[in-house]
């Protein structure tokens, strides 16, 4: 067993884990943060995207011991309790989801994208989300949702 200290959504957790514990299992099963989903489990679908030290990664392909000392943000920590992040609001307003399974990963990937590029073209949004799969085929509205959030975060007028 290994002892790790990880700051998750601003709160420090010290946990004892088996070294083989994947970060996504650590978040879901040890910390009960089930907003991070397990989809393909092969680092292709992006349902498990979280941020580690501000960068988006796929939590199914990282060991919990590898984030010892790091800061992790999950979908639960994106906005203060009771509030929606502009991306969450955008997905709501633009109908950026159908079943919702891919949504947490989409939003976390999009949050990283907008950090890097606050004013992306539609093409850049699609390219930036290439690591996230939506099997309801809802990409069009996902792009609109990200653009809604980008506009709002820039302080521009927003239209759903």
């Amino acid at each position: 067993m290994s002892t790790i200290t990880v700051t998750v959504n601003g709160k420090a957790h010290t946990s004892t884990v088996e070294p083989r514990t994947l970060l996504v299992h650590y978040l879901r099963e040890h910390l009960n943060l089930t907003g991070t989903h397990i989809g393909c489990d092969t680092s292709q679908c992006g349902a498990c995207v979280v941020h580690v030290d501000g960068k988006s990664i796929k939590a199914c392909t990282v060991l919990a011991v590898q984030v010892d000392g790091a800061s992790v943000t999950t979908i639960e920590g994106l906005a203060p309790a009771g509030e929606l992040h502009p991306l969450q609001e955008g997905f709501w307003e633009c109908h950026g989801l159908q079943c919702g399974y891919c949504t947490p990963g989409m939003i976390m990937a999009a949050a990283d994208l907008l950090q890097q590029n606050p004013n992306p073209s539609d093409d850049e949004v699609r390219h930036g989300l290439e690591g996230n799969l939506c099997r309801c085929t809802g990409y069009h509205n996902i792009v609109r949702a990200v653009q809604y959030a980008a506009a709002k975060m820039r302080g521009d007028e927003v239209t759903a």
Binding site: S43, V49, I57, K58, V62, A109, G131
Partner: peptide
């Protein structure tokens, strides 16, 4: 290579 999440690791 891959996607941005892969490139970050």
């Amino acid at each position: 290579i891959g996607d941005i999440q892969v490139r970050n690791r």
